[in-house]
Design a protein around this nucleic acid. Structure first.
Length: 483
RNA sequence: CGGGGAGUGGCGCAGCCUGGUUAGCGCGCCUGCCUUGGGAGCAGGAGGUCGUCGGUUCAAAUCCGAUCUCCCCGACCA
């Protein structure tokens, strides 16, 4: 959209200042607001509705793959957290502690969970005795607290909402299979429902979760060229089962430690939706998760209340019956033009305009948020047409994002190009890496880019020279500056 | 946590350097009239202990100190 045509003027243009644009969108679209405590935000109804849709669509998948939901305590005794040292070290700097109960000082401090491996591990040791008790496939929807130094709405807040899955298995193979199964579930969910293309793969040991054997992640490229980790799936090995003593007797009467996994996605996904799809006019929401999929704006001219409004009400009823999330904005105090701009900013995928002219012709005007296309269509089988159109918008948004990701993924074979691209254009950079942490570290220091993933699906076969040290390398990996 | 910038009605800002009596402007909000196919117009009106705490002074939005919060750039994380 050209500058002079911009109707949404309360938002800083994306090209001018991405960070301000991001915060403007969040506040103007009323997704969230800053709370009076550092790093904390209130998720407002419109933003929470998006989260509820995300929850619903993901929860369905989690359950369909054999998991069940449960709820564990918010507090974790310090001694539990201390059992796995690597885990403790990873989280210690950002744990909030409860030291008093009312006036009385506690015997033992309680951590406000930064994640629940410890408390869940402690419970699993009580629940698991036999191979017949396995696998345990539990998920919980919860809030966690991490005292981060730098915060940003949805991307990194002191408290955030997420789901965390925690499973226990009899064998390592089974645990690894579960880890990858969830990784794929996340990929499919994010691409299908959030319309965000991702790359999936394994984290380097430097980037893996504190206490995990292996960490896998789902990464996406935001429209400013920086990468965002959208979800992680960890193969925990037996680290936690050994310290929490989670043992079972197998069918050969041998006592064994279980193999575990944990995995999660958070309200950060909302940040990813904003940054992947948003434009200068504000949000663009994929239809699958949009709280309002269709906004009906009656054109209020003359005796519109007697002529236009009843038809609009009827259309709303019809679309609702067809399970479309529709809203009719019949407020008199705002002009149609104002409403057009307002719902564009809020990212509503489809606008339905209906005025006196349309009623004479038995038609409506539909305007797509994804590409601005305006089409006139008859009212016959409008439910069916809109249902199809929403699906088309969903797919188109994914394709637009995929096209962006492709254009901003660069294969490089020398460090000079690497530095130049990271500096000028950002995006994903794919290059050979020798596997040494020193190269990874040096690249990070010199370019601020990190290895996002070692992709599961090989991009290139064979071997090449490490982009940093030049030694023979067998991993072709994704680099990017990340959030 | 280091470097830079900023907090003034709901939002965006001016005023501060060079203290001075009723703290302005645009948008928004309220009332009325009139309008309504891309954020209408006119008239009237409400709303601010100038982030917070302390200090200097006859006098502080303005000067000094502390503190909190936000934004940007760097080291850690969903």
């Amino acid at each position: 959209m050209k500058k002079e045509e911009r109707l949404v003027t309360q938002i800083t243009p994306k090209s001018e200042d991405f960070s301000r644009w991001y915060v403007d969108v969040i506040r103007r679209a009323e997704l969230a607001d800053y709370a009076p405590m550092k790093g904390m935000m209130v998720i407002r109804p419109y933003g929470y509705a998006i989260w509820e849709n995300i929850q619903q669509l993901l929860d369905r998948r989690i359950k369909a793959s054999g998991h069940v939901n449960a709820y564990f305590p918010l507090f974790i005794p310090e001694s539990f957290l201390k059992k796995e040292m690597e885990h403790l070290k990873g989280f210690a700097p950002e744990v909030a502690w409860v030291t008093h109960g009312g006036q009385e000082e506690l015997e033992e401090r309680l951590a406000v969970r930064p994640t629940s491996e410890a408390i869940i591990g402690a419970m699993y040791s009580k629940w698991i005795q036999s191979w017949r008790d396995l696998p345990i496939l539990i998920n919980q929807w919860a809030n966690v607290v991490r005292w981060e130094k730098v915060t940003r709405p949805f991307l990194r807040t002191t408290e955030f909402l997420w789901q965390e899955g925690h499973t226990a298995h009899a064998t390592e193979e089974e645990a690894r299979e579960e880890t990858l199964k969830i990784l794929n579930l996340y990929r499919e969910f994010i691409e299908t429902e959030l319309a965000i293309p991702v790359v999936v793969g394994k984290k380097t040991s430097r980037e893996k979760f504190a206490g995990a054997l292996e960490t896998y992640s789902v990464e996406a490229l935001m429209s400013d060229g920086r990468a965002l980790q959208m979800g992680t799936s960890h193969h925990l090995g037996q680290h936690f089962s050994r310290v929490f003593n989670i043992r079972f007797e197998d069918s050969n009467q041998n006592l064994q430690y279980v193999w575990q996994t944990s995995w999660g996605v958070s309200t950060r996904l909302i940040g990813a939706i904003i940054m992947s799809h948003g434009d200068d006019s504000g949000l663009r929401l994929p239809p699958h998760i949009a709280p309002i999929q269709v906004i009906i704006v009656p054109i209020s001219i003359g005796r519109w209340k007697e002529t236009v409004l009843p038809v609009a009400v009827d259309l709303e009823r019809r679309l609702m019956a067809a399970k479309i999330r529709v809203k009719l904005d019949s407020r008199e105090e705002y002009t149609p033009g104002w409403k057009f701009a307002e719902y564009e900013m809020r990212g509503v995928p489809l606008r339905l305009e209906i005025g006196p002219k349309d009623i004479n012709q038995q038609q409506v005007v539909l305007v797509r948020r994804d590409n601005g296309e305006k089409l006139t269509t008859s009212m016959d089988n409008l439910e069916g047409k809109i249902t199809n159109l929403l699906e088309e918008i969903q797919k188109n948004m994914f394709n637009q994002a995929l096209e962006f990701q492709r254009r901003n993924t660069h294969d490089v074979d020398n460090y000079e190009d690497f530095k130049k691209i990271i500096e000028d254009r950002r995006g994903f950079i794919r290059a050979w890496w020798c596997g040494q942490e020193t190269c990874e570290e040096s690249i990070k220091e010199e370019t601020a880019a990190t290895i996002r993933v070692i992709p599961l699906e090989k991009v290139k076969e064979g071997k090449g020279n490490c982009v940093y040290c030049g030694q023979l390398a067998s991993e072709y990996v994704y680099f990017a500056r990340a959030y």
